[in-house]
């Protein structure tokens, strides 16, 4: 059937797989944005910078201290997440309750500062981070070639996303978080430390971004703008999916990655814009997003 329209199945499946890899980054990042927005009402423009910092932390650890990939996968999110908590405490908390634009401007400024600093020290040419030896190579599945590392990225992203969903929707801490999104004052009046919950949520969202950054380091080149470029697409993903639903963010992220991959096969010229075209269409038809609830 594919041959009929002149496209070999290997090329199609290969592109779809690449699309899913991109989609898993969209999903992880848009998930963090949605969780942060839900509780803090901040459109976190610094999300891409934290993603980039995750990748840089992994590179830095490897280059200067010989800290390997697997350790970096744990350490970088912890360190960058802690930095995120500091940012929330010292900066974002001060503008809580103000119009959402203030948070957007603050985090946007922060992202530019962080990017500028990193560029100042490391330039913007891009640093190479090797694929971990355990995951080098791949396997020819007959219908496509599967690089182990990319398979791992897809699998662990899905696991992380679903775990986040589970924690938010099915656990006690998750129900506290959802309640605080609805009515923080009342949750506080029940004896729960809402400011701490807010800091922690921001920290976890940021740590998710840093985790994605470490995952990305061996695939994309590590450079100061890597997060900013990705974040623009991720915002489009968030607009398409809607802010409302965790599962929606995951599905939209993966789905749009797939669509992007498909476009690369059938009409490569459009692959860079297809997500934005979909965004415009969704905004026209269902402005609250596919999974969002009208408010």
């Amino acid at each position: 059937m594919f041959e009929l329209i002149g496209i070999p199945p290997q090329a199609l499946l290969g592109q779809l797989f690449l699309g899913l890899i991109n989609g898993s980054f969209y999903a992880t990042l848009s998930l963090g944005l949605a969780v942060i927005f839900g509780l803090l009402h901040i459109i976190n423009f610094a999300h891409g910078a934290f993603y980039m910092l995750g990748a840089f932390a992994a590179w830095f650890g490897l280059t200067h201290f010989g800290i390997g990939y697997w350790s970096a996968l744990v350490l970088a999110p912890l360190i960058v997440g802690a930095a995120g908590i500091a940012v929330e405490r010292l900066l974002i908390a001060r503008i809580s309750g103000l119009n959402v634009l203030y948070g957007l401007l603050l985090t946007f400024g922060l992202a530019l500062v962080v990017q500028g600093l990193v560029r100042n020290f490391y330039g913007s040419s891009g640093l190479r981070y090797p694929v971990p030896a355990d995951l080098a190579g791949g396997k020819n599945l007959g219908f496509m070639f599967l690089p182990w590392y990319r398979g791992w990225v897809l699998a662990i992203s899905v696991v992380v996303c679903l775990t986040t969903w589970f924690v938010i929707e099915r656990t006690r801490i998750g129900s506290t978080l959802r309640a605080a999104q609805e009515n923080p004052g009342l949750v506080e009046a029940f004896g729960i430390n809402v400011p701490r919950l807010v800091s922690l949520t921001y920290g976890v969202g940021v740590a998710l971004a840093a985790f994605a950054g470490v995952l990305a380091a061996p695939i994309y080149s590590v450079q100061p703008e890597m997060g900013a470029d990705l974040l623009i697409v991720v915002f489009a993903v968030v607009v398409i999916g809607g802010m409302g639903s965790i599962l929606g963010s995951i599905l939209t992220g993966l789905g749009l990655g797939l669509i992007e991959g498909l476009t690369k096969v059938f009409y490569p010229e459009a692959s860079n814009v297809v997500i934005f075209v979909i965004m415009v269409v969704v905004l026209m038809i269902k402005p609250e997003g596919l999974f969002g609830s009208a408010q």
Binding site: S175, R178, A179, E182, V187, F190, G191, I192
Partner: peptide
């Protein structure tokens, strides 16, 4: 009444910590 829409009845019941 302050019942949370995104929580089930049981989650609402268990929201306030025991003091």
């Amino acid at each position: 009444r302050g019942i949370f829409a995104s929580l089930s009845v049981r989650e609402n019941l268990f929201l306030p910590p025991e003091i």
